[in-house]
Simulated assay, not measured.
Amino acid sequence: MASSDIGIDLGTASILVYVKGKGVVLKEPSVVAYDRDTEQIMAIGEEARLMLGRTPGNIVAVRPLRQGVISDYKTTEKMLKYFIQKAVGKSFFGRRPRISVCVPSGVTDVEKRAVEDATYQAGARDVYIIEEPVAAAIGAGIDISRPCGNMIVDIGGGTSDIAVISLDGVVVSSSIKVAGDDFDDAIVRFMRKRHNLLIGERSAEEIKINIGTCYKRPENISMDIRGRNLVTGLPKTVTVSSDETEEALREVTSQIVDAVHSVLERTPPELAADIADRGIVLTGGGALLHGLEDLIEENTGITTMTAEEPLTAVAIGTGKYIEFLSERK
């Protein structure tokens, strides 16, 4: 059996697996639930995510990746093995696949090695490490081989990667540990401060997805959210409006805008002129936050658009990276 080339978008929030010729075959949360007493893994992926914040004492649901970096090596290795087998079937161990994995642009060599080792342990024949912005650009359909400046802002769960890419490489980049998870945290903090209401990560994510915005919406929409009243200690329902989410997310989103600004300041003038012509491309799950395009455009004066498939762009780019390398050779 011919081995398949696999691309893995190893994200803080979710893992996507791309198989050559099939596209993205798997997208699951990067969560693992295990039994503390026996060290046995109970569930991985979506099944484990449903357990977050809802487990008895001996069962822990954890995210083995923090801010795009492996924080729990053993668990990451098991999770990778599970997802690779689930994506291509157990039969692939006849001939091990070539796997490319993407990492945030600011990771250290030690962190890169950890990803590489975990992928080899999970059953890879060759491992290629690719930086997230490059993968995002390839996945968004940008021809990065031309001597022309392209700016990519990839907002994931744990990190936001901003890079200017030209001639297959990153010219200027910045990786900040502010992204989708921080949007959720900001909403949790806001609800506690403004409404004396304690809500969980999942409820915060619901607010973010349904009514969250970082730029004033034309119409103010609202939704009900349940949590625990911090004064009485009892369950309580509160109505939240999109204007409130704009206030809650203001500080976090302005950090991303500042990072875009600082990358533009360090960009060589010729490439900066290209970006002014071609615009800024947003990818990653965080790019789906309402109003982000408008906010970046207002602050930089450069047209900003979201890639067609922002959630899968990095995974597709990571998968195509192996083909891209062989073409170069």
Results as ranks from 00 to 15, higher is better:
Glu132Gln: 13
Leu234Ile: 04
Val164Gln: 03
Thr300Arg: 05
Asp9Thr: 06
Asn150Gln: 11
Ile176Trp: 10
Arg66Asn: 12
Arg328Pro: 05
Glu270Cys: 04
Thr239His: 13
Asp72His: 14
Glu77Phe: 07
Ile211His: 10
Thr267Tyr: 02
Asp5Gly: 13
Ile176Pro: 09
Glu265Pro: 02
Gly21Leu: 09
Ala135Ile: 09
Asp181Leu: 15
Gly94Phe: 14
Ala163Ile: 00
Glu205Pro: 08
Glu244Lys: 03
Ala13Phe: 14
Ile138Thr: 00
Glu265Gly: 01
Ile256Met: 15
Leu282Asn: 05
Gly286Gln: 04
Asn220Glu: 10
Ser166Phe: 07
Arg66Trp: 07
Arg278Cys: 07
Glu327Lys: 14
Ile155Ser: 09
Cys214Thr: 06
Ala48Gln: 07
Gln85Thr: 05
Ile129Lys: 13
Thr267Phe: 01
Thr306Phe: 11
Leu198Gly: 03
Val103Gly: 11
Ala315His: 06
Leu167Lys: 15
Thr283Lys: 00
Glu244Pro: 02
Pro268Asp: 04
Asp37Glu: 09
Val24Glu: 08
Glu246Gln: 15
Glu47Leu: 12
Arg328His: 11
Tyr128His: 12
Val17Asp: 11
Gly158Ser: 12
Arg113Ile: 07
Glu251Phe: 09
Arg192Lys: 13
Arg98His: 08
Ile130Leu: 14
Pro29Gly: 13
Leu65Asn: 06
Ile59Asp: 00
Leu292Phe: 07
Val257His: 13
Arg194Ile: 03
Cys214Gly: 06
Leu288Val: 04
Thr253Asn: 12
Ile130Asn: 04
Ile302Gln: 02
Glu308Thr: 07
Gln40His: 15
Pro56Met: 01
Ser254Lys: 15
Ser166Ile: 01
Val238Leu: 14
Val115Cys: 07
Leu311Phe: 10
Leu288Tyr: 05
Ile8Ser: 14
Leu198His: 04
Gln85Pro: 03
Phe93Asp: 02
Asp277Asn: 12
Phe92Gly: 13
Ala287His: 03
Ser14Asn: 12
Asp168Arg: 15
Asp274Thr: 00
Leu65Pro: 14
Met51Gln: 04
Arg189Ala: 01
Ala124Lys: 00
Lys320Ile: 01
Val170Ser: 02
Glu323Gly: 08
Thr237Asp: 06
Val263Tyr: 10
Leu230Lys: 04
Asp5Ser: 11
Tyr120Glu: 02
Glu265Ser: 00
Glu219Ala: 09
Gly23Ile: 00
Pro133Thr: 00
Ala276Arg: 15
